[in-house]
Design a protein around this nucleic acid. Structure first.
Length: 484
RNA sequence: CGGGGUGUAGCGCAGUUUGGUAGCGCACUUGGUUUGGGACCAAGGGGUCGCAGGUUCGAAUCCUGUCACCCCGACCA
């Protein structure tokens, strides 16, 4: 059976053989993307883009439900604006793309292609905000950003990528902190419930925080090769940007104060996470809530029964569509049913509906789940009810499976030798005690390539042991992992 | 940016050692037979051998340079 399976998907390198190659095979064969003629840039093909649109739609809804409005700020940022916040420039300078000419004329001031929009948005906020009555400002934008990366990987790290960046301004620290955590929670909810990816929410260390932020929080996911991936970040920017951009307001008490700001974002990198958390040797496995196609109907239509089978298939298609299911029919004559099964499995469609002459006789259809491979026979009149129920079950099962994997690959030790062995051999997350010093964090990173992913909220109340590295009193329990 | 590898038809590869008419499988086109896990027969189409120089009567093959991609390391959503 295993050998047979291998043959069906000969175009995809097995994960066990070469995980990176598997990842590349899957995204190319499933037509999520293709390489563009510009280094580090990719074309997101219709199937991949539809997936992105579905993700976008569901997250956008949550962003709006929490009181934010979308806006659009320019792609170009004058050099002088980027320069204003010292830590920020230092963080982004090595990877910005510059515009030096307009047509044939050299610009008097160079422009950067936005690597993120804090500076240009702050510039505008300083004009818009005068009074406490103008606060809070709650704005989000969906856009592309450019970071000139040295090494790139499709979806995980590309020179240009699509994302959403929220930028808010508040009266004080409490409000800003509340917003920062609220949006992190929005991300957690979205990623866990819609993408079926379990995450660890927590605070980033000083070393790992965003350039220019006071505090950075993240959600971290575990890929099926045991490496971690940052799936979303939310920053409390403090008054840093307000001070350099002079964003002040007159408060109720008559005093002029700086605003407190936040920013938060998730990107097309989430598509990479989706692939690596759920994918298998047959290709993609997509969660029903965001899958471009939720159900693919494959009619099995030999000549003598062709008309009847196709008519019934069309009827079922209409019925499911009516029931609000994203359903497609593959009635191409040039491909055999077996070929189609493999094709749609590669593309990660959650549910396949097979209907042929035998089923027609019996008044049933066959449903095949992508997540478990299980098939079941369902009476035709029950399909409109059974299909949505199954999709819900698949969504749940995918999350449960991923969560089990994450738990099974989360280790715990304060012994450095054991830690090193786990990181090298088993990978996954390692929960350890840490004294809070940059030196220990840095040394561990250099010696093991594992970094502190975050200081998790869920272990905040637990007392840490001795620091993994120096043996002094631990300050925090933290998640370590090698990461993308 | 360092170390390693690969560039020959859309994809996967052989041919390069020893220079001599550019091949194989899949995919594609046409016709026919097929259809419950990548169907079969027949006939076709498609390549300035990554690019640029050089050596030679003659270069996929030898020499020099260059570019792209992949893998592994330093920076990042």
């Amino acid at each position: 059976m295993a050998k047979q399976e291998k043959e069906f998907v000969k175009e995809i390198t097995p994960q066990s053989e070469d995980y990176s190659q598997w990842y590349l095979d899957v995204i190319l064969k499933a037509q999520l993307m293709d390489y563009a003629p510009v280094k580090g840039c990719m074309v997101i093909r219709p199937y991949g883009y539809t997936l992105w649109e579905n993700m976008q739609q569901r997250l956008d809804k949550r962003i709006k439900e929490t009181g934010h409005l979308n806006a659009y700020f320019p792609l170009f940022i004058p050099e002088s604006l980027l320069q204003k916040e010292a830590d920020h420039v230092e963080g982004f300078a090595p990877e910005v793309a510059w515009v030096t000419h307009g047509g044939n004329e050299k610009l008097t001031e160079r422009l950067v292609v936005r690597p993120t929009s804090e500076t240009i948005i702050c510039e505008m906020y300083s004009r818009w905000i005068q009074s406490y009555r103008d606060l809070p400002v709650l704005i989000n934008q969906w856009c592309n950003v450019v970071r000139w990366e040295k090494t790139t990987r499709p979806f995980l790290r590309t020179s240009e990528f699509l994302w959403q960046e929220g930028h808010t301004a508040h009266r004080n620290e409490e409000e800003a902190e509340e917003e920062t955590l609220k949006m992190l929670e929005v991300y957690r909810d979205f990623v866990e419930n819609d993408l079926a990816i379990p995450v660890i929410a927590g605070r980033k260390t000083e070393k790992e925080k965003f350039a220019g932020a006071l505090r950075t929080y993240s959600i971290e996911a575990l890929m099926s090769d045991g490496k971690a991936l940052q799936a979303g970040t939310s920053h409390n920017l403090g008054e840093h940007f307000a001070r350099v951009f002079d964003i002040t307001y007159l408060d109720k008490d008559g005093e002029l104060k700086y605003v407190w700001q936040t920013s938060w974002g998730v990107s097309t990198r989430l598509i990479g996470a989706l692939i690596m958390v759920h994918g298998d040797d047959r290709g993609l496995v997509l969660p029903p809530l965001v899958a471009p196609t939720q159900v693919i109907i494959v009619p099995i239509a030999p000549k003598k029964a062709q008309a009847e089978v196709l008519a019934k298939a069309q009827e079922l298609y209409n019925e499911l569509k009516e029931a609000g299911v994203r359903v497609e029919m593959d009635d191409r004559e040039e491909y055999s049913p077996g070929w189609k099964f493999n094709e749609w499995e590669m593309k990660g469609v959650p549910l396949r509906l097979e209907i042929g002459p035998r089923d027609l006789q019996a008044g049933v259809a066959v449903l095949a789940r992508r997540d478990t491979g299980e098939k079941e026979t369902v009476a035709l009149e029950e399909l409109a009810e059974r299909v949505p129920a199954l999709l819900t079950e698949i969504q749940k099962n995918m999350f449960a499976k991923a969560k089990r994997f994450m738990e099974e690959n989360t280790h715990r030790t304060d012994d450095y030798e054991e830690f090193k062995q786990i990181v090298a051999e088993k990978r996954g997350f390692v929960i350890s005690s840490w004294c809070g010093s940059d030196a220990c964090e840095q040394a561990i990173k250099e010696e093991t390539k594992a970094t502190i992913r975050n200081i998790p909220f869920h272990l905040q109340d637990e007392k840490p042991g001795n620091c993994l590295y120096c043996g002094k009193d631990g300050k925090h329990l933290v998640y370590f992992a090698r990461s993308y």
